[in-house]
Design a protein around this nucleic acid. Structure first.
Lengths: 164, 164
DNA sequence: TATTGTTATACTCTATAACTATA
DNA sequence: TATAGTTATAGAGTATAACAATA
């Protein structure tokens, strides 16, 4: 299907001395720019949360537990695209810091119901305040909430039917 | 500066039984969606280049050498955000496969001028053909070249003045 | 038999310090 | 003194296999 949508230049013949390749400008490559932007955003996140010593994965785990307490490890790990084996050390860290805990579930004795501790709830409140500042900074860079929404729509298109 | 642009819901009081947090919907978090989209695009890249055994970093190094032969390692590494120490093994791999080579530079005897081999030039031609298919697939997903351009513009805004 | 959490392990990426040979 | 390339090393992140307890 389809002709070359990738090139912008009319494909003229290479001049002498020039390389014989019709190359993408690098700054227009979707995957490349996506990666650089993601790294920049994560770096901004790490700067914002340096004082709280919180990494993106820990943020999202705490957010999911806060949103719906009692979920089991596999559920949260799957939602975040984390292998359950790698989730163990992550959860160990949150438990060691006294922010979240594993409780024995009512029905299934194999699984753990994950909950925030009292200290963890206070932590999450501060975490969300910091996150709001961080996120609003990104939204301003993008040009406002409408531009943010446009970005999300485009990224969702890249994610659609990728795993199906 | 500025009020909360992050929330979409009117911040009503929490109902009994609901968690006491006003949480972001996770799917609307810029960094989170950015990361998932980047992983999906890279996975698509890896699938496309599985047969050629080429990873994104190797692709971009070959593309930069092809674009302007004779550049030295530090130049290319910096353009790609790779530490020069980590660039060594990457370049070793390309050299071992006979795709690119280190030549002694004319002026500075410390530096290496990087060039494609004859075999490497042929490889890059095939590489660019595969890449065009991959990239056009992404552009179709986005809804066409205009949507791709809009995405690049938004990602550039996230990258602007981040490191200054 | 299948699933939950776990351990052990390995591989990739990334980051830093220190060395050498040149400049 | 500083720079280009290199080595060694350590830390994240991620992937798989296998096990015990439970379903």
């Amino acid at each position: 299907m389809s002709e070359t949508k990738t090139r912008s230049r009319p494909s003229g013949k290479a001049e002498p001395g020039e390389p014989a390749f019709d190359l993408p400008p690098m700054g227009s490559i979707i995957g490349y720019k996506l990666r650089r932007a993601q790294l920049a955003v994560f770096q901004d996140f790490l700067n914002a949360f340096a004082r709280m010593k919180l990494r993106p994965a820990e943020f999202s785990v705490l957010a999911l537990i806060a949103e719906r307490p009692g979920q089991k490890q596999t559920e949260i790990a799957e939602k975040l695209g984390i292998k359950r084996a790698n989730f163990v050390a992550l959860m160990d860290g949150l438990e060691r810091r006294g922010l979240a805990e594993r409780q024995k579930a009512m029905g299934d004795k194999r699984s753990h119901a994950l909950r925030l501790t009292v200290e963890g709830s206070a932590f999450v409140k501060r975490m969300l305040a910091v996150w709001n500042e961080h996120e609003n900074g990104l939204i301003e860079k993008l040009g406002g909430p409408a531009e943010r929404d446009r970005l999300i729509v485009l990224l969702d298109r890249l994610l659609a039917r990728s795993g199906e």
